[in-house]
Amino acid sequence: MPKKLNLAARYQNPKIRSHLASQFVLGTLSPKVKQKVIRLIKMDKELEQAVYQWQNRLEPINTSTEDVQPPKKVWAKLSRELDFSEQTKPSWWQSLFLWRGISALSLVLMLSLFIGQYNIEQTDSTPNLALQGPSYLAVLTSTKESNQVLPELIVSAYKSAEAGKSELHIQWNKNTDDKQDFILDNSQSLTLWAIDKNTGQQVSLGPLVSANKKQKLSVAQWQLIKNSKELWLTKGNSATDPVLFKGDCLQLSSWKNS
């Protein structure tokens, strides 16, 4: 058996895996073996899980360590190194209560229409996850910033049991007569945002690729949708760019489960 195969097979042994994970977390592996473990973690989910378990087991030792405020220059050097630009805060109109009121009102109206009467366009390929029904749904209505009356955008998030396989569907309502020439695709530099339900912070979910197409959601993106109270769509990728659509994000999984 080739040497490499022997090694790979060796790491499948639960005892060796646990030994490597524990010594990796303890910090007693030689630099060479440590680098090997770092590479293996990316390929072997069970090793990653074992490392996580050992991190959790030993991490409480750190709580006996006193906090020490680092010098201020560390952050200054770090932000220079990472080339951070000064981020501007959202403009005053973005936090206007009026918009939230209009949004909430339109949501109730649109949701009732959506459930009772409207047919939603099918995506270009039928999603398997759609059979389970969406976990989160937002009906985005156009704002004054869009300078035109547009139909509603339906954003639905479908949860997959597999990490990174969850999907986001963005679709026009069937009633697209009013759509005029408005195109929703990546040529428009449109960005979808989640508004955190606890902090109200506006966090990017990334660019909108296209309407009527499904997009994969990373675990982090899913977490942001899960924690959001509203979803916004902006023209541009900055938090201060005009908000064209917005709507409350509703959790549907409990309905489905019940």
Binding site: F84, S85, Q87, Q201, V203, S204, L205, G206, S218, V219, A220, Q221, Q223, L224, N227
Partner: peptide, 13 residues
């Protein structure tokens, strides 16, 4: 919560 935003390259987070 913050790390989930950092992985989307959110500088404020």
């Amino acid at each position: 919560r913050l790390l989930s935003q950092v992985c989307l390259h959110n500088q404020t987070a």
